[in-house]
Simulated scan of single mutants.
Amino acid sequence: MRVNKLTFAALAVTATLSLTACQSGDGGKGPSDPSSASTAPSPGGGSPSWSADQGGGKASGGKSSAGPGTPGQGTAAGTGSGANGKAAKCRTDELEITAMDNTIDGDPDGTVAVQLKNRGSRDCTLSGFAGVDLKTNAGSLSAKRSGEQAGAAVLKPGKSVAFGINYPINTSGGSGVRVTGLLVTPPDETKSVTLDWPGAATLPVTEGPGSPVKVGPIGSAGQGD
């Protein structure tokens, strides 16, 4: 009986040692793996590597080449400038528009110079041709564009530029067509202004299609400053 008890005791001890060895081996590997992963540096900038004060959006925004301090990116807001730092178009309400007789003695045609002055607080651009219509007792007469090269002008506040209107002088001896007013529409605008006509009182009656009145491009008259 004593021999049997010793045998069972020996078997129990052996089984216990074997079970302890197995648990020790598996347990050593189990907790070590997640511990190693959580402390390793993350090359891709994963969530374990960022703290609450190091958010990805904040870091990239502060270093972005297109941030608020970059030239050409948001710096033109409120200045009236357009894309690439260019001055925006002059609007009709920003311009003081006047007309004056500019006919030179001896010229076969009469000339009226129309001046456009920037009365706003920002630089603006005028380019191409303005729209010109003469009001007459026979109806409205639209001026056609001359063959001159169309240019552009950047007007600083208080500065002006002018263009010319050429018309035939009435030498027929007849009453002709009476001019009662001048309608000017700045380039790229739809709003017009009505002015008194400072030129000759009448135009000759012409036969055939087309308008005898011609308008030059912006800068074609020497009245700007």
Rank of each mutant, 00 (worst) to 15 (best):
T92A: 10
P31F: 11
A59T: 05
A59I: 05
S47P: 03
N84V: 09
A76P: 00
G30V: 14
T39N: 03
C90N: 05
P71L: 14
S35W: 08
S36T: 11
T20A: 11
L6V: 05
K63C: 04
N4H: 09
V3R: 10
K89D: 15
S49V: 13
W50K: 12
E96L: 09
V3T: 12
G80C: 12
T75F: 00
G44Q: 09
P68E: 12
M1K: 06
G69F: 10
K86C: 00
G85Y: 08
P31H: 08
S49K: 04
R2K: 13
P68V: 11
G46F: 04
L19R: 02
F8M: 05
C90Y: 03
G57S: 14
P68Y: 08
N84C: 05
D26I: 12
G78P: 03
D33A: 10
T75P: 01
L95K: 01
G62A: 15
D33S: 04
G80N: 07
G69D: 13
C90R: 02
P43Y: 07
G85L: 13
A40P: 01
S64H: 11
T16F: 06
Q73Y: 12
K86R: 08
G56F: 04
A40H: 03
S35C: 09
V13Y: 00
A87P: 03
T39I: 14
G74D: 09
P43I: 10
T92L: 06
S64K: 05
A15Q: 06
T75Q: 15
G85M: 12
L6F: 03
R2W: 06
A40M: 13
D26L: 11
C90F: 07
S35E: 14
G74C: 08
C90A: 12
S64I: 08
S47M: 02
T14F: 07
G44D: 14
L11Q: 12
T79K: 11
K86E: 11
D53T: 05
S60C: 01
Q73W: 09
G44I: 11
P68T: 13
K5E: 15
D26V: 11
S81D: 14
F8E: 07
V13F: 03
L19A: 15
S35P: 01
P68F: 09
A88P: 00
G28V: 04
A40G: 04
F8T: 07
K63A: 15
S64M: 12
A52M: 08
T16P: 00
A37D: 07
T20I: 04
G56Y: 04
L6R: 10
F8V: 07
